[in-house]
Amino acid sequence: MKRLLPLFAMLLLLGSAWAATPLPGDSVYNLSVQLTDQDGHRQMLADRRGRPQLVTMFYTSCQMVCPMIIDSLRLTRNALDPATRARIDLLAVSFDPARDDVATLKSYAEKRKLDPRIWTLARTEPAQVRQLSGVLGLQYRQLPDGEFNHSSELILLDADGRIAARTARIGKLDPEFVQAIGKLVAPPHD
């Protein structure tokens, strides 16, 4: 325990360092987006600063690609070495705030067995969905039947919220993307 104390002190210092350093201009955290997760917790998107994130957008009633997006996130995470895996968080934000309320996100997370310690499924207000898709470079369009057409990508954000890598390969693993995550999170000569 004594040995751990300096580590805690260092973590505390690091934490305050994050808060003190101004955000880089190209960080998605410059956008003010209020997220509500599958447990009803509210959080600003920028509060996720400090740890790298794998981010995507989806919606729960989508039958075709979205399950594959979630599968691809899982697949990607599983392909990481354990040290890297422990240092990233997963975030999936809904395109469909009208239907994806907290309870719907919750039951989806349970059905898909998405561990809440690892996965954040979140909703935000419609105007902010459009803004978030803008900074992430994702496109979507609602159809008259309530479905969405949307681009499907996994995006790697560094600890400051800058887009470090992205992949549009959905449904199977993208080894280059996995490599990019490893390089960002746990550089070999760290």
Binding site: S133, Q139, R141, S151
Partner: peptide, 12 residues
């Protein structure tokens, strides 16, 4: 950014 999302974008 929603205008030309391909209508068969669910085809992967």
């Amino acid at each position: 950014n929603a205008l030309l999302v391909a209508s068969d974008s669910r085809d992967q």
